[in-house]
Design a protein around this nucleic acid. Structure first.
Length: 646
RNA sequence: GCGCCCGUAGCUCAGCCCGGAUAGAGCGUUUGCCUCCGGAGCAAAAGGUCAGAGGUUCGAAUCCUCUCGGGCGUACCA
């Protein structure tokens, strides 16, 4: 609602300025910090002052007297050195909110978002949770704005990390495939692999000769034959399921899981290699340290540095690097490879949606994936160099448009605070003790496992629920606690902007007060409670559209605090739109918190059900309903559910 | 060395892209608020050389340059 008023004002100014001064002012509207300055501030007189060489106040005065009426605007006044402060027609604004909000125009083009992308060789940890929470929330943001989104979760089931765990089972533990299969059927197989991966990595460190295990395993996986390859399948498939389960606890679902094994078997790389060679995007190095490798010159992906080395795409032994495969995958995402996967269904989600996984077995597929118009890769900032190389690959092939629409949705890592390390009983080497935080390391087994954290959050939430609702059935209390725990977790992961390093701390993550998910959930629960109580009293919700006439609306909104609160609550669309353009889920989280704060204040100040004046009571009920809807809508975008009680 | 990111209240962070009106929030600290829709709440106080120095500007936390701290990259690992 706010958005459409804002746009109307913007358009009025743009066309007036173009007609009156013949200027295309790139003007931006501001929301004044002081509520008494009105709802919108137009600083355009300052810009025009420079161009026209006239004092800003004079231009502002001209604008006010000449622009004419703008629908929905009640007043326009000059303030300060030349601000134009705009006041809305409150009754018209409130009346607009009474009607159903218009759904955003559905977009035609497909957006692909790839996130999660965890090596299927161990349990997911908090770093992975940040990736998934950001990716999933961004997907929800895009969808809420009407975009068509396909969610991909890439599975590197043939890589070094899987190989290391397989090597651990085979060489270190002397396990047979059927033994591994039996273990994989047990719960928490991902935890077992977490430990084994750390043990194997440590063993490599002390026994350099064991590096041969990795090579042998990788070759076996690539050839697809023998016990090592069989074990790799067992491990990767089981861990993928574990990750899907973990992420489902957070309400995260995917459309398709493209796997590296199919990239290999269906010769995606060979197709990409041919393209890269044809267009001379890469060349065979004949001398120097990269002799015998196919490389991409640094000039292709690095802006200014001559000191940068070329990037090896194909090793001297003929195998392709990760980046090479990623270029092939990226080409497929844009539908530029001229090849496609086959798919089979992997699971069905509660809402009936199917999750598909790639296969190399030719089959009739009722679905098609890839071929997106825009691609977001949710990958941490440490991989920005590699993402630059991937985009450079597209550019070098002549796909400059696609390279521009290939977005590295980057974020900083989750690290462990020193206090957190102490709590986990991690012994830090002396040189790490004075660092501000310690990097999570799967290889070292250093980190907080996702499921452990979720369990811990549920336990804590359950204590709180039991203290308040001892009379409720245990199963129901557990469901409520779970909803609260997930709300706390998702909010915690989203409240930081993307390029802020999170130094993970249990005390902060486990907090349910202040700027947290449960605080926002609580506000929504309170709003629902009011309506529930009303019905328990034998009353029903009034028909707002007929009772709240423009006159009544105008009268009620004369009260400054009602107006301010309604205004704040009506800005959800603006907030989400801006956050989506800026690619910043944290801004949606921040808005949700402010909305909840605003409602809690309202809730405390006005006793809706006890109001005696009919018109005011109807108005207060409408405000409550409006708040509830906005809170639920915003929480939905954050992937946070509202429990029945708290 | 080079590239990217960060430095704002005791702590954790918004605000910076797009310069504007007394720099915001949460936690913590201090103090109030349950005859009232459930206090996971509300109200208030204290707390800031926006790392530092130059520059651009009528105006800089915001733009530019440099310096100082810190982090991460810069693999024939992913």
């Amino acid at each position: 609602m706010f958005l459409s008023f804002e746009q109307r004002v913007l358009k009025a100014f743009q066309s007036h300025i173009a007609a009156r001064y013949g200027l295309e002012a790139g003007l931006a509207l501001e929301q004044p910090k002081q509520p008494e300055f009105g709802e919108l501030a137009v600083p355009v007189a300052f810009q025009l002052a420079k161009l026209l060489k006239q004092p800003p106040r004079k231009i502002a005065a001209e604008l006010v007297s000449e622009i004419g009426p703008i629908e929905g605007v009640a007043a326009m006044e000059i303030a300060g050195a030349g601000y134009l402060n705009i006041r809305f027609d409150r009754a018209a604004y409130g009346g607009g909110l009474l009607r159903e909000p218009a759904a955003p125009e559905p977009a035609d083009e497909k957006i692909i978002v790839e996130h999660t992308n965890i090596n299927p060789n161990k349990a997911a940890h908090i770093g992975h949770l940040r990736n998934t929470a950001l990716g999933d929330t961004f997907v929800r943001m895009l969808r809420s704005r009407g975009h068509r989104v396909e969610v991909q979760n890439y599975i590197d089931n043939t890589g070094v990390q899987v190989a290391d765990v397989v090597a651990g089972f085979h060489f270190l533990e002397k396990k047979q495939p059927e033994e591994v299969r039996a273990l994989a059927a047990q719960p928490r197989f991902d935890y077992l692999c977490w430990d084994l991966y750390a043990r194997t990595s440590a063993y490599y460190k002390d026994h350099p000769e064991a590096a041969a295990w990795r090579t042998e395993t990788l070759h076996a996986i690539e050839a697809g034959e023998g016990v090592l390859a069989e074990m790799a399948h067992v491990v990767a498939d089981a861990i993928v399921e574990a990750h899907l389960d973990t992420m489902l606890r957070l309400g995260v679902e995917y459309d398709v899981l493209p796997r590296e094994s199919e990239i290999l078997h269906l010769k995606f790389w060979e197709a990409a290699f041919e393209l890269l060679k044809q267009r001379q995007a890469i060349h065979l190095e004949s001398e120097g340290k990269n002799a015998g490798c196919w490389v991409m010159p640094a000039a292709a992906f690095s802006t200014s540095a001559e000191s940068e080395d070329s990037k090896v795409i194909v090793r001297s032994n003929g195998t392709v690097t990760y980046v090479g495969k990623d270029i092939a995958y990226q080409l497929w995402k844009f539908g530029l490879l001229g090849k496609d996967f086959y798919y089979r269904p992997l699971r069905r989600y509660a809402d009936g949606r199917r999750l598909w996984i790639t296969t190399d077995q030719p089959a009739e597929c009722p679905v098609r994936f890839g071929g997106g118009a825009r691609v977001y890769n949710v990958i941490d900032a440490r991989q920005s160099y590699l993402q630059d190389v991937v985009a450079a690959g597209l550019r070098a092939l002549g796909y400059t448009g696609q390279a521009g629409r290939s977005v590295h949705f980057s974020y900083e890592m989750v690290a462990l605070s020193p206090r957190c390390c102490v709590e986990l009983g991690i012994e830090l080497p002396e040189e790490d003790k004075k660092r501000p935080y310690v990097e999570v390391s799967g290889r070292k087994g250093l980190g907080v496992k996702a499921d452990d954290l979720i369990d811990k959050l549920i336990d804590k939430a359950l204590e709180e629920v039991e203290a308040r609702h001892a009379d409720r059935p245990a199963e129901e209390r557990r469901a409520v606690a779970s909803t609260i725990a997930i709300g706390a977790l998702r909010y915690f992961l989203l409240k930081f902007t993307r390029n802020s390093v999170i130094a993970f701390d249990f005390q902060e993550a486990l907090s349910f007060e202040g700027e947290t998910g449960p605080y926002v959930q609580y506000a929504a629960v309170r709003a629902r409670n009011i309506v529930r109580k009303l019905e328990e009293r034998g009353e029903t919700l009034p028909d707002f559209a007929t009772e709240l006439t423009p006159e009544a609306m105008g009268r009620q909104l004369q009260a400054e605090d009602f107006w301010q609160v309604l205004l704040a609550a009506s800005k959800a669309g603006t907030a989400v739109e801006r956050a989506t353009i800026g690619g910043e889920p944290a801004h949606v989280a921040k808005y949700a918190f402010q909305l909840a704060q605003s409602f809690n204040n309202f809730y405390h100040q006005y006793h809706v059900l006890h109001e005696e004046n009919r018109e005011k009571k109807v108005f207060l009920l409408w405000m409550t309903e409006f708040f509830r809807a906005q809170l639920e809508r915003t929480l939905e975008i954050l992937g946070i559910a509202v429990p029945p009680y708290m």
